[in-house]
Design a protein around this nucleic acid. Structure first.
Length: 474
DNA sequence: TTAAAGTCAATAGA
DNA sequence: TCTATTGACTTTAA
């Protein structure tokens, strides 16, 4: 197991102790070693019960989490990714057997780890598990074994149930976590996944820029205009806010690691992500402090720009560009969107198979098209938001920035208080002390940003209280 | 009760 | 087949 140059063996040992410590009380564990392995691996041993975290094991892990010193989540994920990659182990296997999470969650976690102090107790759990796993000298082997077992089981099934492909399928699915495999085949009841069209996302983003926390009325309005379910709009805002927030965290982490050590930081997937985000999305939305490094790209340019890039259907492209312009806060109200969108939905329309709303034909273009109008006639409060959505006049970042402000500081805030708490424990977990040092450096920069953001926030709040459109310049 | 945090799971893409 | 994305849902926290 690739350990940090530090006293890996030492940390492993103490860690083991740490792990078994809590258990004894609850489950009289005699040998610590076995205890440790029995925890996350609960599923490991018996492939039948994949998702561990039950009873004592869960408890012990929780205690561990509670006792855990500040962990370098970024470093941990980085190492985990390396180990997984080097050994050809998939996220699914790792997630299900070690973390008790699904592949998607693992992917997300590894790609966008939040800083330790930003995590709740529950959120820290996976990282503690990862750390434990990294410290386990047999980690890779165990996983490899699991992999082999799965394969074997799969082959077996395959051969045995040749006739009925159906059953075969279901059984295969159940291999790991079929525990939830309810006897009732309610496939038909499943509602299709909603997939928002780029245009719709674009509109939502514009709305977000105007109002990160739209009122129920505004949400309603948006839903109507975009022909989406209200819940979808609500969910979108929830998700978007939290994801932007995460991007922020990542940036911080990255900035920190880069500035401070800036050497060995590997070029792994993360870096790509970094560059990615830095030039688009989060950054701006996040990097609200526009002026400082104010780069051009619109707020969440990232995914949207991607979408736009992909959907290179002439007209559609135009439409997108218009949108981007708007996002950039270029022009407040002049947008040739309606027309272009019209074209868009005829041809250039990217694939946007949303079928959630059975009622309407649901054409993104249409939806946007209506925006302008409704905005014009909507009641004051509503129109304010919608209009901006349409116009794309940007005043966003406001709330976002405010969030950033509040979150950022705390993120790096660890410097003093918390970080030094349990040095011994830290060593137990064998993580680098790098984090702390980078915090220092960040703080100054952050102060700068904070000042600017505060200003923005202040203006935003003022405007909000008045509920009138304001021109923002960051 | 609301928002945030954490996940799931469908699905797109490589 | 594996990873990344993302809408929806669940849990937690304030």
């Amino acid at each position: 197991a690739p350990e940090s140059p530090m006293s890996s063996s030492e940390s492993v040992k103490s860690l083991t102790e740490l792990v078994q410590q809590p258990c004894p009380a609850i489950e009289t564990s005699k040998d610590g070693k076995s205890q440790e392995s029995s925890e996350p691996p609960a599923s490991e041993s018996q492939s039948t019960t994949p998702l561990p975290l039950s009873g004592h094991s869960a408890l012990s892990i929780q205690e561990l989490v509670a006792m855990s010193p500040e962990l370098d989540t970024y470093g941990i994920t980085k190492r985990v990714k390396e180990v997984l990659t080097d050994n050809n182990l998939g996220q699914r296997l790792f997630g299900e057997t070690i973390l008790g999470l699904t592949q998607g969650s693992v992917s997300d976690l590894l790609a966008r780890p939040k800083p330790w102090h930003k995590l709740s107790l529950k959120g820290r759990e996976p990282f503690v598990r990862m750390q434990l796993w990294l410290n386990d000298p047999n980690n890779v082997e165990k996983l490899m074994d699991m992999k082999r077992m799965e394969k074997k089981a799969y082959m077996k099934r395959r051969h045995s149930s040749v006739s009925d492909s159906q059953s075969c399928e279901s059984s295969s699915a159940g291999i790991d976590y079929s525990q939830g495999a309810s006897p009732q085949p309610q496939h038909q009841l499943k509602k299709p996944r909603v997939v928002l069209a780029p245009e719709e996302k674009e509109a939502l983003k514009r709305a977000y820029q105007q109002k990160p926390y739209p009122s129920p009325k505004t949400i309603e309005e948006l839903a109507t205009q975009l022909n989406l379910k209200t819940s979808t709009v609500i969910n979108w805002f929830h998700n978007y806010r939290s994801r932007i927030r995460r991007e922020l965290f990542i940036e911080e982490i990255q900035a920190g690691s880069q500035s401070q050590a800036g050497s060995s930081d590997s070029p792994s997937a993360r870096s790509s992500r970094a560059a990615h985000s830095s030039e688009g999305d989060s950054c701006d939305g996040v990097d609200a402090e526009g002026p400082p490094e104010g780069k051009p790209s619109g707020p969440e340019a990232d995914e949207f720009s991607n979408a736009a890039a992909k959907s290179q259907g002439g007209p559609a492209e135009a439409a997108f560009e218009a949108g981007e312009e708007a996002l950039r806060g270029a022009r407040p109200s002049e947008r040739a969107e309606p027309e272009s969108l019209e074209d868009t939905d005829d041809e250039g329309r990217p694939r946007a198979p949303r079928q959630s709303s059975p009622a309407a034909p649901q054409r993104p273009g249409d939806a946007l098209e209506t925006l302008p109008n409704s905005a014009t006639e909507g009641d004051a409060s509503t129109s304010a938001a919608s209009t901006s959505v349409l116009t794309g006049e940007s005043s966003y970042k406001s709330k976002e920035s405010s969030e950033k402000i509040s979150s950022v500081p705390s993120t790096s805030s660890t410097p003093g208080a918390g970080s030094q708490k349990s040095n011994s424990l830290q060593s137990l977990f064998g993580f680098s002390e790098a984090a702390s040092s980078r915090n220092t450096r960040d703080s100054s920069l952050r102060k700068k940003k904070a000042a600017n953001l505060n200003n923005i926030i202040h203006r935003l709040e003022k405007a909000a209280s008045r509920e009138e459109a304001v021109e923002w310049e960051f």
